[in-house]
Design a protein around this nucleic acid. Sequence first.
DNA 1: GTCAAATATGGACAATTGTCCATATTGGAG
DNA 2: CTCCAATATGGACAATTGTCCATATTTGAC
Lengths: 197, 197
Amino acid sequence: MTAAKKKERNRQRLVDATLQALAQYGYADASISKIIEIADLSRGMVHLHFENKNALLAAAAKQASEEYYAGFEDWLKDTPADPQARLDAIVDYDLSPNVLNEKNICTWYELRGAARTSPTIGQFTGTRDAQLENIYAEIFGVMTADPDLIQDAVYGTISLSEGIWIDFMLNPSDFDHAAAKRVIFKFLCGLFPKLQG
Amino acid sequence: MTAAKKKERNRQRLVDATLQALAQYGYADASISKIIEIADLSRGMVHLHFENKNALLAAAAKQASEEYYAGFEDWLKDTPADPQARLDAIVDYDLSPNVLNEKNICTWYELRGAARTSPTIGQFTGTRDAQLENIYAEIFGVMTADPDLIQDAVYGTISLSEGIWIDFMLNPSDFDHAAAKRVIFKFLCGLFPKLQG
DNA sequence: GTCAAATATGGACAATTGTCCATATTGGAG
DNA sequence: CTCCAATATGGACAATTGTCCATATTTGAC
């Protein structure tokens, strides 16, 4: 393996270890000591690859955000263009183990909390949120010309998903996939009676 | 002022300062140094009133939880018993500045994150959640006999409120009260067509 | 094989953390 | 007023934090 590849691999290990530490210990206790222990690398590596700890956290936030969309596009690539099918697929994706697993959800919760005091991290949590809004807005735009309805649908669907993720985080073992999907579609059907629930 | 009263007042200042520090700096940076600076008390006071820092955080979580319900009962005390009026009042309460203000929402977010690794804190965030479920379940129980519908309504309403609170936290200046209330009632009307909304 | 550059190691460092305690101040019963 | 217990102060303490650097190892061009 070339030197550049080895270096890149270690950088990646640091980012992955950071995400795991966030999920496992929370933002407050995701220290560099814990991160390098998970990554099985030495202390100096953080400084070699990143300006400081906050830059490492930002890189982790960036990756978490990008992973969501990479999986998203892959999940939807064979989905028909009609709104019903696409909504169904998106909701399934958001409730699939790709997205809805303890590590992902907890990490995201911690990063969002950190975003409040760290603009560098907020940049990445914010863009993920904005992208998701656009995706929903596009689909709902096919179903209605009423901009207020589109806005309500986007806002409601995202908020509802957000709340469901938090419920999952607080009580992963009790989580009821079917109920979650059913509730989201009950909301959507209330707004768009044409949809099948 | 008696000695006991002065002591109790200082204990209260510690708890209040803790909640403020959580909102202002986040759980990770809400150190004892910051807390006593906000409370304008000396370092040893934490140990006099609480076994350790975690007990102080737990007391803060307890108070935050209880304040929610104290305000809740006060807000609803003159509300008619019919479901429509009560739901309207509850949603208004959850969107009122009593509940939906930056300090409250940020504090709650931080405490919930901390609850994940601290059972002592989780105890209080958990009971608040459970109480809220009961309140909603009781109201929906008046509107339908279908237990599945009740469960979906409770789950959806709480998740949606939760998501809306997070949206507020992430973007308090852009928050649209009217839209939030409208979306919640669109959800409820989808489930219970009899509702006006 | 040689050697300079790139990469990695792990300890040093000041700053800050939560805990604890010796001391000072205050309150109120006698 | 006296004096002891209750309350409050602020510094000491080891542990841990994030940062930085001297040293070691590895890489790959020559």
